[in-house]
Design a protein around this nucleic acid. Structure first.
Lengths: 342, 342
DNA sequence: CTTGACAATCGAAGCGCTTCGACGTATCAT
DNA sequence: ATGATACGTCGAAGCGCTTCGATTGTCAAG
């Protein structure tokens, strides 16, 4: 493989001149010289080595990506991380950066730090790191530019992006309120999860803002799973005065709810409106198609990448979190409350 | 950031000794020396630069991945490439390699070759390159180790892996034959696609092997899409003597077929058995759950990576194609032909 | 006819690491 | 005692590129 030395020998010019030409450097060059060099480059089929250049410039034009919480065996199969990754790839592509996937799973600072200290990438994107691990604090200490996706800077202040769960929940609940519902139930995800707590808090707040008195029996803590949605919806429907609308903590819960409603002979949306969160591919295929919140996962990846690239060029980025709004996708599982049940 | 020079200064030993210790090199080292060096490394929080090492060794411990046919905006959202990528990540992780995603879309040799000549990666995985592009021939000329996924080496002989479409199709059709079906129809994907042609050829061959006379009206050329499956199945069901079984070119076609059968009041599997190809997530959720071929996409990614790593260490790899068997997932859309319709 | 100023190019140092021949010392058999 | 060995370490070259002060030539202004 040809090196820059070969070009030098072939043309008789010095390395510096050639480098200057190739990188459209600041020094003036005679047109004839430039042409000769470019011709030799083509003739020799010369391409600069990214590695050597990386050494000299201390810049690799590559961003790293590391998945925190996801199992390494399913990094990309999971809809969330696939969407984020896609966003990252688009963002990086737009700036001419490549992205390298760190495949090693994070163990702890002592064991895993090494991989990230090798200056292989110009910066690092961390996707959904666990709050209980030392990953972020450790990496933040390296002088590597760092941006996290789905991380609360309260835990440790680094630039972060996330979906605006509060706005999303508000969108969903206000949609139900706007349809005239006042007997609105909520099935949460596991109460240990931040998202579950935020959604629940906003749910109660929006009811309150609209003068709707909260009923404890309408708020059920569950899990982000279809089985939980199914079981808890059955319980709701068996109430003496069942709700006319349900804000499901996510789509899986909503799927379970639709199932339970069907079994109980409760028509959706005629007698029960259901709204989910996430817009899983299946949501549109439900019967009826599910009204749900579409999360801006891909946009998160893109935004995170843009922020990281700005950090890489030295700009200061505030920790944020930089929040992106989910979008309410209204389908057929929600409708105005009907007079006879309201 | 500490460099190896700092370690040298700190300990008083030479670079070569330190390098030898750090890489567990071939030279003997006094235990005391080793300890001092390792202590200094820890104290200075020194980590070798992957870039500098890459320059010296001409090896980066990184494999590149490039998606050929897929739109860059959906590289990972697509089930096929996500699964392959997942396999690649697992395979690379097992060997301690990272994988860098080339984000730039392939245009043509002149424009895009540069990115791959920069020795940034030790080898390259190309996923589903288009047969009508100069991608593979161009990259093969570089001295970069190369392995392709879903590429027929007949077009250009490089090591390749692929799903064994012929075996898969045989599995599907023989399943129907084994259930006693003799009036078996086939709806193909776009006849321009190799997979569609292979599946059709095997379909006809298996019928022939089993003494079933082919009926031209039972073989319909379509497209890998639900709409095509729907329309063509209607046509099949309207035949004076409709088929009792359908080998759908893929799951989308099968979904359309189920829809058409339902509309026509034809019970599946009682009056029509349907088998698809791909095992999309939806397949299991159909009514009835679809019998289909599960493609070994993730395994393809892993195998390709393993082959590439062997090439990287200098082993010769035969072009293959190295084929992996799909697996027939029998669900409820196929059943023995019933006496009254056979 | 100087003197800047600028254009065009060169040279050498540096980026951080690996490799391998060379160079002492101990150790050992002879 | 004396080469021959093996041990432990060093030094210098090399990987392929960028950068920037230094150098040479050219031309217009003074």
């Amino acid at each position: 493989m040809a090196t820059i030395y070969d070009v030098a020998r072939e043309t008789g010019f010095s390395l510096s001149t050639i480098s200057n030409v190739l990188n459209k450097g600041p020094r003036p060059v005679r047109a004839e010289t430039r042409d000769q060099i470019l011709a030799a480059v083509r003739r020799l089929n010369y391409h600069p080595s990214a590695i050597a250049r990386g050494l000299a410039l201390r810049r690799t034009n590559t961003v790293g990506i590391l998945f925190g919480v996801v199992e390494p065996s399913a990094v990309v199969l999971n809809a969330y991380s696939a969407a984020v990754l896609q966003g990252v790839l688009s963002g990086a592509a737009a700036a001419g950066y490549n992205v390298t996937h760190y495949t090693e799973r994070w163990r702890d600072a002592a064991q895993s730090e090494a991989a990230f200290r090798d200056r292989r990438t110009d910066g690092l994107l961390v996707i959904a790191p666990r709050t209980d691990s030392d990953l972020i604090p450790t990496l933040a200490r390296l002088d590597l530019p760092l941006v996290a996706v789905s991380w609360s800077p309260e835990h440790f202040p680094i630039p972060s992006v996330d979906a605006d769960d509060a706005v999303g929940a508000r969108l969903a609940v206000e949609h139900l309120v706007a349809l005239g519902h006042r007997r609105i139930a909520h099935i949460t995800g596991h109460p240990g999860l931040l998202s579950a707590r935020v959604r629940r808090a906003i749910f109660e707040q929006v009811l309150c803002e609209n003068g709707i008195e909260p009923r404890p029996e309408y708020v059920l803590s569950g899990e982000y799973a279809q089985a939980a949605g199914h079981a808890l919806t059955r319980r709701l429907l068996a109430l003496p005065q069942p709700p006319t609308a349900l804000f499901a903590g996510n789509d899986e819960i909503a799927f379970g709810a639709l199932e339970a409603a069907r079994e109980a002979g409760v028509a959706v949306p005629d007698r029960l409106s259901v709204v989910g969160v996430d817009d899983r591919p299946l949501a549109a295929l439900m019967n009826p198609p599910l009204t749900t919140l579409r999360q801006p996962f891909q946009a998160l990846g893109e935004l995170a990448t843009r922020l990281l690239l700005r950090r890489i060029v030295g700009e200061e980025i505030e920790a944020g979190p930089h929040l992106l709004r989910p979008e309410l996708v209204v389908r057929a599982s929600t409708a105005a409350v009907s007079a006879d049940i309201s």
